[in-house]
């Protein structure tokens, strides 16, 4: 049954590597044992290239490309950590912090937050951009879970998790620009949306403390980003690793 796919050779940070021809640059980077920061990417979900943290430089290519949605090509020469890329990455993280209301000190995800982790990784100690302090709200209408829009970075992981894995499509992205937000149903309180199966997979997928279980207090959130990949593998390949 195993099908041998054609493979391509490429170079990442001077290190040669060979991957399947349909692999993404991000998969190639990881298979070579290297790392680029990501936020919107989650194995098991369709990549969207929204967070721009996985931008890489390709030699002979005029612009930077997000590794998660770029397919590898024969002879590709990839650089993951040039001074230019590191500058942009830090800037992107600063913008995430400036456009929301991220206060780690009393956040459920403190210590288990991917936004916090990338901030440490890119060496962000302050934002050069003025904080927007947007007026957002908290949706606590669901019996089990809550959504704090202040902490949402619009990565759309919950949207894709609910659509692709659970099949309920409770979430989507509503409005635009600075008013952009995650919406449930017809922009209703979450608890009123009948389509919601209360499975909690959106909470598992959320990289920050935006989606949380109501019983969790400060720094008590335990995210499970690995579940998307496990469920996708069980469904498509009939391999169960989520024992």
């Amino acid at each position: 049954m195993t099908q041998v796919l054609p493979s391509v050779s490429l170079q990442i940070n001077g290190q040669p590597c060979t991957v399947a021809a349909d692999a993404t640059v991000l998969q190639a980077i990881r298979s070579a044992g290297l790392h680029v920061p990501t936020l919107c990417h989650l194995d098991g979900l369709t990549p969207v290239g929204a967070c721009r943290l996985c931008l890489v430089a390709l030699e002979g290519h005029p612009k930077l490309e997000p590794a998660c949605v770029t397919t590898v090509a024969e002879g590709m020469v990839v650089h993951t950590h040039t001074p230019e890329l590191e500058g942009y990455r830090r800037m992107a993280v600063e913008l995430f912090f400036a456009e929301g209301n991220h206060v780690c000190a009393f956040c459920v995800a403190n210590g288990a937050c991917e936004l916090q982790d990338v901030a440490v990784e890119v060496g962000m100690d302050h934002s050069r951009f003025p904080y927007q302090y947007p007026h957002r709200h908290v949706d606590a209408s669901h019996a089990l879970f809550g959504l704090d829009h202040h902490r949402c970075i619009l990565c759309t992981r919950c949207v894709r998790m609910c659509d692709e894995i659970e099949g309920a499509h409770v979430w989507d992205v509503g409005y635009r620009g600075s008013a952009c937000s995650i919406i449930a149903g017809l922009d209703q309180p979450w608890g009123e949306v009948e389509a919601c199966t209360s499975c909690g997979k959106c909470v598992d997928a959320c990289p920050t403390g935006a989606l949380f279980r109501k019983q969790d207090a400060t720094a008590e959130k335990q995210p499970h980003p690995e579940r998307a990949q496990q469920l996708a593998a069980a469904r498509t390949d009939h391999r169960w690793r989520n024992q």
Binding site: D163, H169, D172, V173, G174, Y175, I183, A184, L186, D187
Partner: peptide
């Protein structure tokens, strides 16, 4: 899905 229609409308 409701949220899909609302996403476009908004």
């Amino acid at each position: 899905p409701l949220s899909d229609v609302m996403g476009v409308a908004s």
